[in-house]
């Protein structure tokens, strides 16, 4: 009796110990990032102002604002979305609504996994070889955006497919039994009920696209441009590359400037992600069946 309760007490202690250990690991994973974010805010916060966001860089990028980079990122992301969202949603529709469970589908899935796993610099090489040279787009927003679109395609496909899968099969069968074609069923029942989930994935893709640097370095983003892009065949500055440039390539930059740029970039990305997460939680609370 006594021996057993001793054992229980010991087990309890060991369990508490392990619990603490794992908690510590989790905290240690998060704390450095908290410190880093704090440093970014404390060092870069003073730079941020309306002027900083909406004026051009001056004095060889050692002063002034980031407007062309901010606008360029919006351009690149917008064009990338125009290409990848329709394609990704259609691909997900194929995989979830049409494809059977066979080797061919597995091959597509493997390709998607690899598309997400190929290093971003390899995507950049592909962008140079295919869009800049072969298709003759030159270094342009179009080439950069298409490179990013292919790179982030898996995000759209995977998140869309998940939200399509969440629509119960019984709804489809009810529609088919009424004589609806597959497409009518998708358009009237499946997509309307998956659209918010798809949107969540798209926001996530925006965040990812905005932060990427390597794929746009040689395909369309420029270190410095004295003018704003007028169309998709122009080059542009971009936030991510601008951070790299002011942090490493330009001499005589005041210490807090790159912190300010980093802060704006990370804020953009985290805000997008937070919206996506909040949206997802809101949807989870809203039951339609």
């Amino acid at each position: 009796m006594f021996a057993e309760s001793d054992l229980n007490a010991r087990n309890k202690r060991v369990q508490g110990l392990f619990r603490m250990l794992f908690l510590m690991m989790t905290v240690l994973l998060i704390v450095p990032v908290a410190i880093i974010l704090f440093t970014l805010v404390s060092k870069g916060g003073s730079v941020i102002s309306i002027d900083f966001l909406f004026t051009n860089p001056t004095d060889g990028m050692t002063a002034g604002g980031i407007f062309p980079a901010l606008l360029g990122t919006v351009w690149i992301v917008a064009v990338a979305l125009l290409a990848s969202v329709p394609l990704g949603v259609a691909a997900a529709i194929y995989l979830n609504e049409y494809a059977g469970d066979n080797w061919f589908t597995r091959l597509i899935q493997l390709a998607i996994i690899n598309l997400a796993g190929v290093p971003s610099i390899v995507h950049a090489l592909f962008g140079v070889g295919a869009f800049v040279i072969f298709f003759g787009f030159g270094t342009s927003i179009l080439a950069a955006s298409l490179t990013l679109a292919i790179m982030t395609l898996p995000i759209v496909i995977v998140s869309t497919r998940e939200s399509l899968r969440a629509v119960p099969q019984a709804f489809r069968e009810a529609c088919w039994n009424m004589g609806a074609t597959r497409w009518q069923t998708i358009r009237r029942i499946v997509l309307p009920n998956a659209i918010s989930g798809i949107l969540t994935g798209v926001i996530l893709e925006v965040s990812r696209t905005a932060g990427e640097t390597a794929p746009i370095m040689f395909t369309g983003a420029a270190f410095f441009l004295p003018f704003l892009p007028q169309g998709v065949f122009d080059q542009t500055m971009a936030m991510s590359l601008h951070l790299f440039v002011v942090a490493t390539q330009v001499p005589g930059v005041p210490e807090e400037l790159p912190f300010g740029v980093a802060l704006v970039l990370i804020a953009m990305v985290l805000i997008m992600n937070s919206i996506s997460i909040a949206f997802r939680m809101y949807l989870r609370g809203k039951k339609k069946w």
Partner: peptide, 16 residues
């Protein structure tokens, strides 16, 4: 939190 950590762009990590 973990999801937000995964979202920080690599160029920001390089800068850090």
């Amino acid at each position: 939190l973990v999801e937000l950590l995964a979202a920080i762009p690599s160029v920001v990590w390089g800068f850090i």
